[in-house]
């Protein structure tokens, strides 16, 4: 029996999360990166598409904080623009993929029977498809169109594992007595799904979404690096890294800033995900007193 009546679960998780220094650092880093990506550009007088014809390939200076490229573009403005794009794509992809996973997994687990079989076949099918290749093949068709299509594609290929986990959780949750109580009272299955099943998995879903952010950013940069993702004139961390690698040793400022921010972003997101998982898991030793 729980002795500490009065301490709600949310507060308990928060308290345990706060005890993890490193996760807290990750959270601070994410907040800082988001602020930096969206407020940073207004600090500098250069725009990411502007070019300074008086400064080609200049190292960092008071004029151009991160230096300039071969054609005189400001690296600071470009990097922040790339970070913006990568963050937005990462978060959107994570939210869409976790949402999709939650609905498909819960529906498959709860309704069972043919719904379950068809949905799981679909999941298995998507799992065996080589997602990288498909996005690469499809990328010419969305050239010049919105990058949101790219987000949909990324999300469409990253929800399957979570859906299977959610299905498993649903199978055990639906045997719980509060679900049976609702069924016996004549509550509709849709209401049960959204009112009883999904909220009781919310902690898992939040953790999953957090971890997915890191994965999505990496997938996006990977694809963009090969030219299949974000298309010029727009930039993302991936395209910047691709442009900078050739001169990584000779003109390091072209590569170090975008590469460093990518590592920092993914690391921060993973740390928060780990911290959340430990804070939610009552058996985890590391968050104990």
């Amino acid at each position: 029996m729980t002795e500490d009546v009065g301490v709600s679960r949310g507060r308990l998780v928060l308290r345990r999360f706060r005890r993890r220094r490193i996760a807290l650092f990750g959270l601070v880093a994410i907040v800082f990166l988001v602020l930096f990506a969206f407020l940073g550009p207004s600090l500098s007088k250069w725009n990411y598409s502007q070019k300074d014809y008086n400064a080609f390939l200049q190292p960092p200076s008071a004029q151009h904080w991160f230096g300039t490229t071969q054609i005189g573009a400001d690296v600071y403005a470009q990097t922040l623009r790339g970070l913006q794009k990568s963050l937005v794509i990462g978060f959107l992809t994570a939210i869409i993929s976790t949402g999709l996973a939650a609905i498909v997994g819960a529906a498959a687990g709860y309704y069972g029977g043919w719904t379950d079989r068809v949905l799981m076949w679909f999941v298995d099918l998507l799992l065996v498809l080589p997602s990288f290749l498909i996005i690469a093949i499809l990328s010419p068709t969305f050239q010049g169109k919105t990058w949101l299509l790219f987000v949909v594609l990324l999300a469409g290929f990253s929800w399957m594992i979570t859906a299977r986990i959610v299905r498993g959780l649903t199978l055990s949750l639906k045997e719980r007595e509060f679900v049976r109580a609702a069924e016996f009272m004549g509550v509709s299955s849709r209401t049960i799904l959204f009112r009883h099943l999904l909220p009781n998995m919310s902690s898992i879903l939040i953790i999953d979404a957090t971890i997915n952010v890191g994965g999505a950013i990496l997938a996006e940069t990977g694809l963009s690096y090969f030219g299949f993702g974000v298309q010029p004139p727009d930039v993302s961390l991936g395209t910047l890294i691709a442009d900078g690698t050739k001169s990584a040793l000779t003109y390091p400022w072209l590569f170090v800033f975008c590469g460093g921010l990518l590592i920092l972003t993914v690391l921060a997101v993973s740390l928060v995900g780990d911290g959340l998982r430990d804070a939610v898991d009552p058996n985890s030793e590391s968050s104990r007193l």
Binding site: R176, E177, F178, A181, R195, H196, N200, S202
Partner: peptide
């Protein structure tokens, strides 16, 4: 139900 811990939805 038998078990009052399991029969009430903890989130409601």
């Amino acid at each position: 139900f038998q078990d009052p811990n399991a029969s009430l939805d903890p989130r409601l």
